[in-house]
Design a protein around this nucleic acid. Structure first.
Lengths: 205, 205
DNA sequence: TGTACATCAGTGAACGCGCGTTCACTGATGTAC
DNA sequence: TGTACATCAGTGAACGCGCGTTCACTGATGTAC
């Protein structure tokens, strides 16, 4: 029965978990190398050993986020009874459940764009978006890209507006009891009468 | 011919101008009260006199941004020869010309949500979005809100993806020479064949 | 027209804070023989 | 099976930095009479 052994054993994972706790609880601004060390119960100099600097840690965290995001998108769109916009619904759901993490994932200024782990995870996850329903294309036409972007921008925009609190004003003038989800469904119903749908493209984003 | 008079005369405006310079040149992270004072050539304690704290300064700056944003949206949509999506084009154009400012405007974590100047300017600007073409409604149905949101989310999403560098991947697999603007037009053309259009709502957002 | 006084705008030194980073260290583990 | 040694993981004190904030101050302006 050893208490607080000198070697942590899985400090990298521990620090990532600690970092996510801080992100959820205190927000991105509070997430520093020292704070992560404190939360994980190790000395403040330990994180540098595993991540180099803060953008290294944030990039790893974002990569992990993209992996989970991708998994949720995948299971939503590939379920046998999945409906047309379930990818978009999963997109919003993930962001709602992990607001700070989602913002980190798309907030380029804090991430290391050269981090291979992040690049890989992002490409995987965002590739799913494009590839939800049609056959993949290696060299899409501008028209095909327009369709892909239409679906992506639509749900990404809705999600960002929601995270930044911009939907509150609309909900205030909406019929009593209207929820964010109801707004989403109303928007999707509008889009559903047209061509704004996900198309397939060969991985990349 | 007086050089560096003790009283600046218009320090508040001077500090806002300095702050925007820093925002454009060095990014949001570099924008501190001390940096703004340095840029404006006054002592570091001066800004607190006018703005209280940093979120006060940032909120004023965002408010000014919304005023200019609103003016550009207005002139784009109310020109006699304006086309259907000119509001959306102006939306993206503003963000492209003022990327850091645009992100600040929509990045709620740095702003003071109770700042009346900001609230007013934001409401004015975003109200235009909803009110681009149809007659205003005081109590819109959920369906009407869905339409409004469709147009807004579409262009906001496109804009955020562009600012965060997410369109680069798409441009890499696009036909040679494709520009961001071409992607936008392709997306709008897709949307143009349906009901995803701005509708009118009585100011608020 | 002048003078006294209050108010306002900006100064500059000082403070404490949390941060990232460095560095010599020590405890634990793995490996060669 | 044991021993020597290299390597790895984490420690803790120390450093310098820029930040926001406080505070006594001073120069400039406005106002009352």
């Amino acid at each position: 029965m050893k208490t607080t052994p000198y070697h942590h054993g899985a400090l990298k994972e521990g620090l990532l978990a600690a970092a996510e706790t801080i992100l959820q609880r205190d927000g991105l601004a509070a997430l520093t190398l020292r704070a992560a060390a404190r939360e994980a119960g190790v000395s403040h100099a330990a994180p540098a050993h595993h991540f180099g600097d803060l953008s290294g840690l944030l990039s790893e965290l974002a990569a992990e986020g993209f992996r989970r995001f991708g998994a949720q998108l995948k299971s939503a769109t590939q379920a046998t009874d999945s409906r047309r916009w379930d990818g978009a619904r999963a997109y919003l759901a993930f962001a709602t459940e992990n607001p700070a993490l989602f913002q980190l994932m798309f907030r380029s200024d804090r991430l290391d764009p050269t981090n291979p782990s992040l690049q890989e995870a992002r490409m995987q996850a965002l590739g799913l978006l494009a590839g939800a329903s049609e056959t993949p294309v290696d060299h899409p036409t501008v028209e095909q890209l327009g369709k892909i972007l239409g679906g992506w921008a639509l749900i990404h925009g809705f999600t960002m507006l929601q995270l930044d609190g911009r939907l509150k004003g609309l909900l205030r003038i909406a019929p009593e009891g209207t929820t964010t989800d109801a707004l989403l469904e109303a928007m999707l119903a509008t889009a559903d009468r047209n061509e704004l749908a996900p198309a397939k493209v060969a991985r990349d984003a």
